[in-house]
């Protein structure tokens, strides 16, 4: 069942001092990267959209409904969220962990779980306990959990942080494929080059305020990087394979 593409619309969204007056649209079918220095409010913004936090000002709208007034399970069916430091408290099997993605639907349908396992290349791992997996494999299992819920939006907080180069590349491919399949993908990314190459759009945050919003080349322009990060830097390489050279 393919829904007509829509967007999460943020209007003047804020939370105390941590985030102020963020207005932006998060589109389906795109990868949106949230970038900015430490403490800029990246995770706060993502957690607000995920429903893990409630805003103190402004609203987030999905299909003209206020996200934070929706029934939590209904919201969870639309938006899947992968926290920054994912915890796995119990040694479940891969299949059981991925099946947690069906909780918001209140069913135990196998097809979405099988599809998610397949999409992440985990068919052979399904019955293994998660404690026996490597860090990269575990990251794929956790993303598969989100996919099993068949959300329209996938939110991930620094999913690349603890992955080696090969897993980073493979995860980036998976996320792009999800966006190409019509999902709205939102990732908090520390590595600006990765953000530049992965995202269709970048939200650049600075001290709790949305500083820039646009295609990577515009939002991450040398001028913006100087203003936000205080470094002189320029982009090398070609589109899709950009490298950031810090000159000062």
């Amino acid at each position: 069942m393919m829904q007509t593409p829509s967007a999460i619309e943020l209007r003047d969204l804020g939370l105390g001092d941590r985030l102020r007056g963020v207005s932006a649209r998060i589109e389906q079918g795109q990868v949106t990267a949230i970038c900015g220095p430490n403490g800029a409010g990246k995770s706060t913004l993502l957690r607000l959209v995920a429903g893990a936090l409630k805003p103190s000002t402004g609203v987030a709208l999905l299909d003209n409904s206020r996200l934070h007034d929706m029934h939590p399970r209904h919201r969870a069916q639309q938006i899947g969220y992968l926290p920054q430091e994912p915890q796995i408290a119990w040694d479940l099997s891969v299949r059981n962990l991925v099946s947690l993605g069906r909780l918001a639907h209140g069913d135990a349908r196998r097809e979405p779980v099988d599809a998610a396992l397949g999409a992440m290349g985990l068919d052979d791992f399904a019955e293994r306990p998660v404690s026996t997996l490597s860090g990269g494999e575990r990251a794929r299992v956790l993303l598969a959990r989100v996919l099993a819920g068949e959300p329209r939006f996938i939110l991930a907080d620094e999913p690349f942080a603890s992955l080696d180069l090969a897993y980073q590349a493979s995860l980036a491919r998976h996320l792009r494929a999800q966006a190409a399949g019509g999902k709205g993908v939102v990732v908090v990314v520390h590595d600006l080059a990765l953000a530049h190459n992965l995202a269709d759009r970048v939200l650049l945050l600075h001290r709790g305020v949305l500083y820039a919003d646009g295609p990577p080349a515009d939002a991450l322009s040398p001028d913006n990087l100087r203003a936000v990060f205080g470094v002189e830097a320029r982009w090398l390489g070609e589109p899709g394979a950009r490298v950031l050279a810090v000159t000062d």
Partner: peptide
Amino acid sequence: DALTLGEDAARSMGV
């Protein structure tokens, strides 16, 4: 079960 993945994840899963 949802809490297996932490409080934030559980909240985002509708708990």
